[in-house]
Design a binder for these strands. Structure first.
Lengths: 162, 162
DNA sequence: AACGGGTGATTGCAAACGCAACTATGAGGC
DNA sequence: GCCTCATAGTTGCGTTTGCAATCACCCGTT
């Protein structure tokens, strides 16, 4: 597990482990910044954004809980309760599903759309300042390409930007 | 801006936002995998590893709570309680600080060292399978380089690998 | 139509989290 | 010495998490 083999010679797995560590730490740090910025602006946490964005990109702004849960990045296990909280704030609504009465739809409301937009301005600003401005466009392209490869094997998940 | 008419033209910020989205999603997915693997092996969560590794790399395997908290990636706000749990399992010990009686040291125990090693074999295996094997060494180098630049502006933090 | 196994979603609960007090100690001015 | 302010670490508390039931319903079989 030694990091460096006492020389400039790093083994392949050392290099890759180092890359993983950066990935891990950098995203945690960045996330921390974004959450703090949202909180400063008196906006809800990023998990809400995540859910709102997924709904906004779904056909008709609606999705079955199940599908929603499959796409959510943050708070995977608690989509039901996340939705509860957001419903209480009027950002989404639940509709029972006619073709399968076990099911429920989550539907984006106008308030939800509006909030997502407000959150995005803050979110975007922070990401840009802490990340976008620190890298070149070529680096960004390459980063996205490499990570896409990794992600592809991890799951058929997409999550577009904003 | 990228007014180049070469096929798809995404603006610079689109590209960068996309890179951020990948960073975010991929690390979340990877983390999920690692946590699951640790749990399967009946080992504690990654946050414990994080703390153990930091201590192991500190001089004398000891660190003031304050310094520890500053280096921890996961569970930043709860280092006291994380340490409580780990102390209860005998992985670390607390020692009062003589030169500043408000202070306390966290000291790594032999059991802590041993556990970290066991965790690393699982952790390493999962990272390798889900990440290392999916990318080339050049990609890893470039990824680490780019993210290091970003991280550098985020804080003087280092966190070496494993 | 009744059964049994499977699936969608919710709920109950213990653990962990984020943050704001709080305690105890140090450090500087007077 | 005494007063005040800053710092190290802990604790209290309301919220959120992870996971294992649980409830409600669908569907294929008999």
């Amino acid at each position: 597990m030694g990091a460096a083999k006492s020389g400039k010679n790093s083994s392949e797995s050392d290099v890759k482990n180092r890359a993983w560590a950066r990935l891990f730490v950098t995203s945690a740090l960045l996330l921390e910044r974004v959450e703090a910025a949202l909180k400063d602006a008196k906006l809800p946490p990023l998990a809400w954004y995540d859910l709102l964005w997924i709904l906004e990109n779904a056909e008709g702004g609606r999705l079955r809980m199940h599908d929603l849960a499959a796409r959510v990045v943050l708070s995977r296990y608690n989509v039901t309760r996340l939705a509860d909280r957001m419903e209480k704030e009027g950002l989404i609504a639940r509709e029972r599903c006619e073709e399968d009465r076990r099911g429920a739809y989550c539907v984006l409301t106008a308030a939800g759309r509006a909030l997502r937009k407000r959150m995005w301005t803050v979110y975007k600003g922070r990401i840009n300042a802490c990340f976008g401005e620190r890298i070149t466009i070529e680096e960004a392209r390459m980063l996205a390409g490499t990570l896409e490869k990794v992600q592809h094997h991890l799951r058929g998940r997409t999550l577009e930007q904003p």
